[in-house]
Amino acid sequence: MLSVATWNINSARLRVGLIEKLLTEAAPDILCLQEIKCESHLFPAEALASLGYTHQAVSGQKGYHGVATISRVPIREVTRHDWQDNGEARHIGVEVLGRDLLIENVYVPAGGDVPDRAVNPKFGQKLDFLGRMTAWADTLDRPSLIVGDFNIAPLESDVWSHKQLLKVVSHTPVEVETLKRFQDAHGWVDLGRQHVPAPQRYYSWWSYRNPGWQENDKGRRLDHMWASPEVARQATAHRVIEEARSWTQPSDHVPLVTEFDL
């Protein structure tokens, strides 16, 4: 068995205690973090290694972005793609040693507030990032798992109100269509919806701007775990650790965990 978790932590240094809580309570074999918001040498490597996660691949950046994959089983870093073509630390790929599996950890750009590349360059950068990611996926020929904050909620049941969010960045038709092209490029299987079929409620993010997140439940499914078909067939369980949104000084995202019989 192998369990893999993904979590946009929104600062690894500020929330190292929450990472430790997750590792102690959920105990995934591998944890992929996004938005670590620190340079690689400032990542809390020793604290996490002391819990048994001695295998680490970190791509950091001062104050923004950054991804890290930590593991208690041997892994080896194999790739760092710059799909935004601007030097931002948004991807790291590792190989799980002794198993035929790549794990791609990605943080897709949020895309700003206006869903129009003519007036909002960040939105165009997001679409272009996904386009480059799609070209990469089209050449991928190994069993793979891609996880992270995709910053897109593709299905109507992935948001609290499809009608009200149709023109809001993360749920616009052009983003959904662009993400679907990426999915089709490698035949990725959406593990979340494999185990929690639509239209069941499934969210992974609630805005800090909404203090009553549980009462109002205005969530979106921005975080994803997708697998090659052969890997997806070996997924035995999937869960959303929604209670993490109520932990002290929480991230606005919650962890996802998938278990595999590999």
Rank of each mutant, 00 (worst) to 15 (best):
G148E: 10
K21Q: 07
R90C: 06
I30L: 02
S161C: 09
D85V: 04
F150G: 14
A57D: 03
E39L: 02
P173G: 09
H41Q: 14
V94M: 07
L97W: 13
L33Q: 08
H224C: 00
K163F: 14
V147M: 07
V174S: 15
N8M: 06
K37M: 09
T172E: 11
L102N: 11
L42D: 10
E35I: 09
H162A: 15
D223F: 00
A227V: 02
R117N: 03
N105Y: 01
D128R: 00
Y53V: 04
T178W: 10
T236P: 02
L127G: 04
L166M: 12
P154W: 04
E177T: 10
H253V: 12
N120Y: 00
L33K: 10
S251R: 06
T79P: 01
L179H: 01
H65K: 09
T248F: 03
S3Q: 06
V240S: 03
K122I: 09
F260E: 06
P173A: 06
M133H: 00
S71C: 11
R72S: 04
Q34T: 12
G93N: 04
L127S: 05
L256D: 09
G93Y: 05
G63I: 05
F182C: 12
Q34P: 03
G17H: 08
L166S: 14
P255L: 10
P199W: 01
H65N: 15
L33F: 13
A49L: 14
A12N: 08
G17L: 04
Q84K: 15
Q61R: 03
R193T: 08
W83H: 10
V147L: 12
V231K: 09
Y107R: 03
A110Q: 09
G52Q: 08
I30H: 01
H238A: 15
P229I: 05
F150S: 13
P28D: 03
T172A: 06
Q249N: 14
N10R: 05
R142T: 04
N210D: 13
Y53G: 04
K126I: 00
K167M: 05
S3A: 05
G131V: 06
H55L: 08
A68N: 11
D190S: 06
S251T: 05
P74E: 15
A45V: 03
A118C: 08
N216F: 12
V189P: 13
N210T: 11
H81P: 06
L14S: 05
I70G: 07
Q234A: 01
H65P: 01
Q200F: 06
T236N: 08
A244Q: 13
R117D: 10
V240P: 00
L191S: 13
I103F: 11
G63Q: 06
